[in-house]
Write a protein that binds this DNA or RNA. Structure first.
Lengths: 251, 251
DNA sequence: ACATTTTTGCTTGACTTTGCGCAAAACTAT
DNA sequence: ATAGTTTTGCGCAAAGTCAAGCAAAAATGT
């Protein structure tokens, strides 16, 4: 069997990407060619930026990055740019000595990436959120209570009891649906209860929502429109602005 | 089989991150190479800031980098097999309808890997522990309160208040030192307070400790010997058995 | 079919990595 | 402290790896 140069490049690439690394000797044997050829190939692929040449062989280009992250973050792909801009804007609103509640959920998770105020205090009911907060060196508290599988959010009566003593200056909440009549809605009744109390105990509650959330209704309402300011990327209907304060973030 | 330098780095990193520490000898044997090479690798990874080199081996960077704990956390890595057996035994003690408290810490983290009883209820003050529990599909609660940086444990008055209403049937606790006179000790006063209350509210509190923990004393005592049963791999001194119930797990 | 260009494989000298021995340094226990 | 053990860093020789040069083989163009 004879391989074209391009085919060999492809083979080398797939081997290295699949296994993350390979030695010159391995590749030479696998592709049934000399080590000199493999070296030349690796040099070429390295110059193309397709792999990283190292002493003894080569590794895939993204060797050291990523690997271990929450399954929560895997779901963050949708509306990534929009959520990022909303998050960036919200983070800029946090001032010294603010007492901030951060709701569990993917949109608010993004928010934490942009927070840099070390002088505020943060409370969350999201396990992943709590970890992110302390890994950024921020003062973080977590609500106690039952853990909901999948979303890794703390819910239940204990969480609500925990919330009752707290008086947040700002709260950043996620939502599944925003509707003129039904208000802010979410499919899970336990999460809704926690959201409801968190909003009531906050001086300034904000809802972080990209434009796809509007005109959607889920089973449980946790707040009416007028109770929260909405931070969004685009408003599909001006009727909403007569009901509450809305900030449109430009992308 | 020949390993690329980068692959060896990756292996070392994953081993150290998984068990928090490893000795030069262990790594040399596991990776089938000489101790000299491992030392050179550890020096390189240390300079890259990926791990922390300590006398005898290396520890993961995220762990208790605080002052006097370095040697202890290396020991924790050293005693990997022993801790695994202790954890396996403890997991087998959990029965249906048990109400179980799991202390934060590396020893108890291992315990969760072996838990399979879906009919018990679990409470923990460790953020990482909480995630592990729900990812195994178990019913899990987390204490609320302030998050301690680095160890990701929930501590403080809120955590203690949360504990007061709970009556655990079993509690699995870690410790840094076990001593005839000073009892069970740990270097952190906030974590000690939480441990103390958790033990008091438990019907059967267990201490998971490999044999290196004996005859060591740290700054804060959180319980006396007679308050807890000890699960260990080897008892260095029979005097301890006159003070409390001790189960020796065979390796 | 023939000359030209490209690719391949091998050799060589330079360079890197590895494993071992040993003296110095670090840790432990008394 | 002091003696004993373990670990460490360094030099060095052996083994492994590399890029460059060169000639044979293969592909290409006329």
């Amino acid at each position: 069997m004879k391989l074209l140069t391009q085919e060999r490049y492809q083979s080398i690439l797939s081997i290295i990407n699949e296994r993350n690394a390979a030695t010159v000797a391995e590749l030479a044997q696998m592709l049934n060619t000399s080590e000199s050829t493999i070296r030349r190939d690796l040099t070429a692929l390295d110059e193309m930026g397709k792999i990283k040449k190292v002493y003894g062989g080569a590794t895939s280009i993204s060797q050291n990055s990523g690997s271990f992250e929450d399954n929560v973050s895997l779901r963050e792909g949708l509306m990534f740019e929009e959520k990022t801009e909303i998050a960036r804007y919200c983070a800029s609103m946090i001032n010294d000595s603010d007492f901030v509640y951060i709701d569990a959920g993917t949109t608010t998770s993004r928010l934490i990436d942009f927070i840099d105020n070390q002088n505020a205090t943060y409370v969350t009911n999201g396990i992943a959120h709590a970890r992110k907060l302390i890994q950024k060196g921020l003062t973080a508290y977590v609500l106690g209570g039952k853990l909901k599988p999948l979303t890794e959010a703390v819910v239940g009566t204990e969480a609500i009891a925990n919330l009752h003593n707290l008086n947040f200056s700002k709260a950043f909440m996620g939502t599944n649906g925003i509707d003129l009549k039904s208000g802010f809605t979410t499919p899970d009744i336990e999460e809704a209860s926690v959201k409801e109390v968190a909003i009531k105990t906050s001086y300034m509650p904000f809802i972080l929502a990209d434009h796809t959330k509007f005109r959607r209704v889920f089973s449980v309402t946790f707040a009416q429109l007028r109770q929260c300011c909405i931070i969004t990327d685009a408003l599909p209907d001006s009727k909403f602005s007569s009901e509450t304060v809305i900030k449109e973030v430009k992308i």
